[in-house]
Write a protein that binds this DNA or RNA. Sequence first.
DNA 1: ATGAATATTT
Length: 822
Amino acid sequence: MASTSIPLPLSPSSPASQTPTTATATAQPLSPTISLPKLKTPTIRSRLSKLCQDGQPHLARQLFDTLPRPTTVLWNTIIIGFICNNLPEEALLFYAQMKKSAPNTKCDSYTYSSTLKACADTRNIRVGRALHCHVLRCLSNPSRILYNSLLNMYSTCLPGADYSSGDLVRKVFDTMPKRNVVAWNTLVSWYVKTERYEEAILQFVRMMKMRIRPSAVSFVNVFPALSGMRDYKNANALYGLLVRMGAEYVSDLFVVSSGIFMFSELGCLDFARKIFDLCSEKNTEIWNTMVGGYAQNNLPIEAIDLFLQATQSEEAVLDEVTLLSALTAVSQLQRLELAQQLHAYVIKHLRVIPIFIQNAIIAMYSRCGSIDKSFQIFHEMPERDVVSWNTMVSALVHNGLDDEALMLVREMQKQRFEIDSVTVTALLSAASNLRDPNIGKQTYAYLIRHRIEFEGMDSYLIDMYAKSGLVGALQIFSEKSSAQDRDMATWNSMIAGYTQNGMIEEAFVVFRLMLEQKLLPNSVTLASILPVCSPMGNIDLGKQLHGFSVRNMLDENVFVGTALIDMYSKSGAIAYAENVFRETGLKNSVTYTTMILAYGQHGMGERALSLFHSMQDSGIKPDAITFVAVLSACSYAGLVDEGLQIFELMKKEYNIRLATAHYCCVADMLGRVGRVVEAYEFVKGLGEEGNVLEIWGSLLGACRIHEQFELGKAVAEKLLELEKGNDVTGYHVLLSNMYAEEGEWENASKLRKQMREKGLKKETGYSWIEISGRINRFVSRDQKHHQCDDVYNMLGQLAMEMKAAGYRPFVSSSLHKVADSD
DNA sequence: ATGAATATTT
């Protein structure tokens, strides 16, 4: 018989006893001497199910164990009773016991249907398959519900990624003799689970065409497909259909919740909120979906506002999940006082704080800049899970404490927690930050040893290697020998790795390779490669990429648009930059900031200012960087009073945290027009906050230009005092130039000597040019170019012609006493 | 007596 060959779990009441005889014994009356009154099956059945409904499944078991020969109906009742009490494992054990101790009791559709449900609940596909075989062998006419149960068992137990090798769920569906709305719903949700959203919608439509009336569940199931497709139009249409189906559809609480979720996934918070507001009896899930929707869409103010409403609501709608969303929202706001208040609220309102809430609190404090508090909470946690460790490790990395993060990972391993993809991501970030290829290699080795793989892993690895000096990045890249193995992210991070390391030629080599493989660059590729077009001095290349992005509709992407603006601006083509800006549909604060920056770099301070004002009118909130752009634009254009006004505005109206860059702009602005003393006073007035190299450096530059030698000396002293091991090559050179201009050659050469001793060396400047796809790079006094002699001959010739034309080189600020001809 | 469904931290 089939049942003997299929292994099944053992008896529930005596897990220790493994032999069929003992299992049978336990199913017999506890005490054979007491003879119970003979009850009819329906009476026992109703008693059993009453006990289970009252949440007393163990009393039901005691009663069941007194039955000498339970009928099929009674077996079914006890199995269903345990499933209803959320004990699917025990339900499976009863089925096993039934097979073993009562082989002659026939299973029916109810038995199989319920046991299949238990398989689905426990993700036990092994038993599920066995049951499928039993059904095919033993039942001549399985019920429709049984087929639905089979379908459901497969759709919950099969791993989502594994449908390619013959879609079993689809096969079962296709072979079903009759399908009702439940079967269709299950199929749709299977397609959603496997992320085949288009197919899910198609099946929903097919069901409608077959005149099967969708149920509320049908809508709940198909909604995620529409948000997954990012199909706002059809989402709207479908919601319209839902409304026309009748009140019982719109007011179904599941429908309300998943409707809110769909629209907030699509970014339509207004619509989501409308559904929320129209719902008269909101349950906790609905509140949570709405609060979470705001948090997920980075609308922390709205999220917190709604959370506060929930706290004041008459009914008890709040639970841990609401709190979780509120914690996320405060993390986004990055306001420490709020974080502390919310933390207090959590302590006050929860008797025990679940681990996942504590994890969120750790993350919140870290995002609000209080890493100490994060660690304290982590340290004092009585129990931690992997997420706790990962949260703390990531928090340390985010706060620049990379070494501490590494140590914590050690500790995590010591305490036998498995490193997972999140840990690895944090580790790789730490390795890039520390520029330590060894940590990276160890992490990579760990990945290989433990066969860890996750989406985007290659890009993280390449990014890490790229940042720590590119040893190995190419290796990982080439190891994925076939083009299919390299996903877009891998190509992109390879290119970005090179561009971020200033290895522009190499970046273009990879870019060309990509094109040769007939791969279409996407918006990320363009956003990585565009920024290096302008330093190449090759605007045609930039224009080609612009053309490419227009043809492939990538120019609508904000990041590409912004990169294009920046590229044109840096290539000196401000008019092109303006055009792109005008044509970028969805502008965000970065788009505006880039354009303002572009105007500033072209000395068009007035335009920068007026763009800033129209940005304010359009309701897009300027951020800290926007103000850097405006202030520096004012500085370049000498619009000092306007600049100072904006500085005030920024402090008072926008509540933006002032950073070094802002102070720098103001000091620079004043210094540039010769208000050097004022600048000095401003910087001194900043106190400790102003003790930053960049600020004093900018002041030094001003002193030099306006020949304020005495003040310059004071500033220089201060700078040297601030230096302490910082890389200040630029200031040394500037300082030495100042001494040189004053004619104090002795001091200048002393400083240069000091520089050499400390091993400071200004980064070599170089230029390059692309000729028929090949990049030629030139460094001062370089002899490596293969046409070196020709190049120097031409240079000499040009120099002579320039001299003949009357050109006199300006040498006063160069470091050395040099002959004019140099 | 049996089947399908919503919110969650790194």
